[in-house]
Design a protein around this nucleic acid. Sequence first.
RNA 1: GGGGCGCUAGCUCAACGGGUAGAGCAGCUGACUCUUAAUCAGCCGGUUGGGGGUUCGAGUCCUCUGCGCCUCACCA
Length: 483
Amino acid sequence: MGRLRLSGLKQERIDKLTTLREKGIDPYPARVSRTHTIAQALNLPLNEAGVVAGRVMAIRSFGKTCFMNIKDGSGKIQLHFRGDNIGEGYGLLSAIDIGDFISAKGKLFNTKTGEKTLAVEEFSFISKSLSPLPEKWHGLSDIEKRYRQRYLDLISNPRVKEIFEIRTKVISGIRRFLDGKGFLEVETTTLLPVASGAAATPFSTYYQALGRNFYLRIALELYLKRLIIGGWDKVYEIGKVFRNEGISLKHNPEFTLLESYEAYADYQDVAGMVEEMIPSVCEHALGTTKIDYGGSVIDLSPPWRRLTLKEAIHNKCGIDIGEYPDADSLRRVIMSKLSPSDWQIWEEEVSWGKLTDRLLSTYVEPCLIQPTFILDYPVDVSPLAKRKREDPKLTERFEVFIGGMEIANAFSELNDPLDQRERFSQALHDEEEIPDEDFMEALEYGMPPAGGLGIGIDRLVMLFTNQTSIREVILFPQLREKD
RNA sequence: GGGGCGCUAGCUCAACGGGUAGAGCAGCUGACUCUUAAUCAGCCGGUUGGGGGUUCGAGUCCUCUGCGCCUCACCA
């Protein structure tokens, strides 16, 4: 038996496999003579023969007759085997286990209970399964096992399969929408000498041939802007970005980001587009623009509520951040409204912008269930956004919140090369972001005014599928290696 | 990284303040030619995540450790 410890169940299946081979039957043939998918076969006229193939999901055997359910990617069908129909082959049925793939030739008929069923005349083994599938009734519910062995999750839990199909439709819906608006989809680079464009810790790696460290991208932003500089007016990319940070219900270290840039547009134009795009994508994926999330019905149809950051904080916290224009005074008034036990996260020495952002995410964000634009963010937390003309402490930036989650982030892109240089050096000082010298050089050649957008696809899918954990919308979420 | 909870048969779950580890499904044997969580009878199946300890005796108590979930911090 060697080092491989076989469970009794597996050994029994190997024995069956050996028996098949001894009878000259190949359990893993190279060709399958399927004529119809199961979905097609179910539409065949009665008495017309067809060959279907699929995985055996259930077996109900009665001496000289036997029912099985098999399933392929299109659906499932019941098979009926009768001793007097398939003769000697009937004895081979006992070698079929749940989980095996078989093909079956036969004609449709209706059972007593009216179920369309294939009366099998011939059948073949097409792939023998050695490990038993999760139990038919309770299925697979162990979360760790579901993530580690997602294939079993997909077999056992139809809703999981559906969620990932919705995910695919969300992405195709986004492409359809943006392509329809004349955007060009591009692919920029993932492996970078400098990871910038967001405030996040990158993953680093080593490039042998060049003999130096490289980083995985943390955003798409600066490369897409290079393309705007290069003369394309509307570009977008859907791609993985990587952030070397903790895992949580809403964070996976690699996630899928959509970013789009439109020249000659500003953040108000982008807001209009987002308000049109999200319902359009939802309609494409789910056939509706009203969704159920965490027990609330969310109506995605426009127009969405618009609030400035200042108004939003004033409404929820009773603090007018305009009256406390520096970090110290703002911190004092926040703490004066809290009991000392809640002071801890506010005591840290952070900027005014950071404090307002924290007020937003702690007290406002969880309440923003219906789609809401929060506009005009502080300049020191928005190093790539253009300043507001009437208040240079603020930027032309908005975020979209739906279901208490941040879904989108957008701004009028900063195209003043000297201001950009200044902001990068401030960000570097705050350990916020790494300046990208090559990008700054590009900006000096001149970039048209542009509106940029970023949307976390995973969170959008969470919203559309009513999931509270990001792992439920990522096929293979990050897990520690299991020994 | 800190704190809380969890891990028992292939799967889903039991086992009360320590006292012989059980059930359903799956599997095996037998009966059964329209069942669909088929039914009936019998059987097989375990290093209770792993290591150490306390005890006459540990799934249960202590300790170290692995993995997962929740939560806090950094972030989207």
